[in-house]
Design a protein around this nucleic acid. Structure first.
Length: 423
DNA sequence: TCTCCGATTAGAC
DNA sequence: CTAACGGTCTAATCGGAGA
């Protein structure tokens, strides 16, 4: 093999949320288990046994709920504090294998193993060490580009013979072609449902079809994104490893309500919580926002009810990350949009035009409101020590109607002492 | 006619 | 309580407004 081929590994946790729950509930092993999204709305993680029962990713819980009685399917509310904590542990272990790595999502990490000797042994060791130290099962896919590493990971997950590790770079040209011909094009990273349909119209069904497609046609019909995907399949790296986490360019805090909301004060109360979360995220990356947007939504699935989905944005007089300042604007925007006679199901706040506080522009007319940032710093450090929501804006949480339903949540074993069972 | 901007679309997980 | 369907984020693209 030529020495300059990139050996890029994608390590992906198996059924991550379900695997996290199983760590503290050994009785869930070999049982059909799913984890639900916020508000216990949709299935977002499935054990293999749940997949075998036909439960689909993203399926609304009420649609498969019957399986609870019929087949012993167990559903749990999501416990993000637990998943984030375990994710951090997995990432820390993986980072020991290479200084060049990217935590791509809560359950996936790219690790650049180029130039490592005994690559085979090392990739098995990654899998085993994560399993031994955290109890989370993972699969490893290796390829010359991110897109092919992802595809290799898919192969590792699907074929038991691979024992959880698959290296695309080990294949001959013929073996590569044979493998790609068997894989449907929707398995490719960046090709979703819509693009799969459109590609089929052009006779592109397998990954091999896409790799070999006529380039000018592809570019004209599908744009630069598809061209990049094709180049990646041709082993030309177009998507680089992002080793440092980029600052968010946009921050959204929104939630569906546990019950429909009809009154303005309740909406404002919910929004003040969203503002607090969004501004805390903003401050955590040392940024400020210049535009705030608020949106309200009725339940789009209830077609018989009157629908109203307003959204309003406003440029702030000065960029800020101050919860109290943003909250006043959110109140104002909410009041301007609120209409009596609708049942609101969801609301949210979006912060955009985000910049680093390092570049704070001095305002010639208004004195800089630096004093308030001390209050926000105090608030952040208290909430960090005692848990999110320990210190709040006065109105926040006065009404309970909007809070989401989470009737099936497991205890916070790793992040809250009081939830750890006595030995 | 060109450019900018907001809204829309598509995707990931 | 007897209906019930997530939350964030990015990038490309498109159409209209305004220069």
């Amino acid at each position: 093999m030529s020495p300059h081929v990139q050996q890029l590994a994608l390590v992906d946790c198996n059924n991550f949320y379900v695997s996290c729950e199983r760590l503290f509930r050994p009785d869930l092993q070999r049982q059909p288990v799913v984890v639900l999204s916020n508000n216990d709305g949709c299935v977002v993680s499935r054990s293999n046994e749940a997949k075998a029962l036909g439960v689909k990713m993203g399926q609304p819980w009420f649609e498969c709920r019957q399986l609870e009685q019929d087949d012993g399917l167990l559903a749990l509310s999501s416990n993000y504090a637990l998943y984030a904590d375990l994710s951090n542990r997995v990432m820390a272990i993986l980072s020991d294998f290479s200084p060049n790595h990217e935590a791509y999502s809560i359950d996936e990490c790219f690790v650049d193993l180029t130039g490592i000797s005994k690559l085979r042994e090392v990739s098995y060791e990654m899998r085993e060490r994560v399993g031994r130290w955290t109890g989370i099962p993972v699969c490893v896919g290796i390829g010359p580009t991110k897109t092919l590493a992802k595809l290799a990971n898919h192969v590792a997950k699907k074929h038991p013979r691979s024992k959880g590790v698959f290296n695309y770079n080990d294949l001959t040209a013929e073996q590569k072609a044979r493998l790609l011909a068997q894989l449907p094009v929707e398995e490719v990273w960046g090709v979703g449902r819509r693009l799969t349909q459109r590609l089929a119209l052009h006779g592109v069904h397998s990954v091999l079809d896409l790799r070999e497609a006529h380039i000018p046609t592809l570019r004209a019909e599908f744009g630069v994104v598809m061209e990049k995907i094709q180049r990646e399949l041709q082993e030309v790296s177009c998507i680089k490893l992002e080793e440092v986490q980029q600052d968010k360019k946009q921050i959204i805090a929104s939630r569906s309500f546990g019950n429909m909301v009809t009154e303005l004060p309740v909406l404002k109360d919910a929004l003040s919580t969203f503002v607090a979360n969004a501004c805390a995220k903003l401050r955590a990356q040392n940024s400020q926002a210049a535009v705030i947007q608020v949106f309200l939504q009725t339940n789009r699935f209830r077609k018989e009810l009157p629908q109203y989905m307003p959204s309003l944005a406003i440029p702030l007089p000065q960029p800020t990350s101050d919860t109290l300042v943003v909250n006043r604007w959110a109140d104002y925007l909410c009041e301007r949009m609120f209409k009596e006679g609708y049942q609101y199901k969801k609301a949210g706040v979006m912060l955009s035009e985000i910049s680093s506080i390092a570049y704070q522009q001095g305002d010639l007319l208004e004195p800089a409101p630096a004093a308030d940032s001390r209050l926000m710093q105090a608030l952040d450090s208290l909430n960090q020590r005692f848990g999110r929501g320990a210190v709040r804006v006065s109105t926040q949480g006065a009404y309970g109607e909007w809070q989401m339903r989470q009737g099936r949540k497991s205890p916070c074993y790793t992040t809250r002492w009081s939830d750890v069972p006595a030995v």
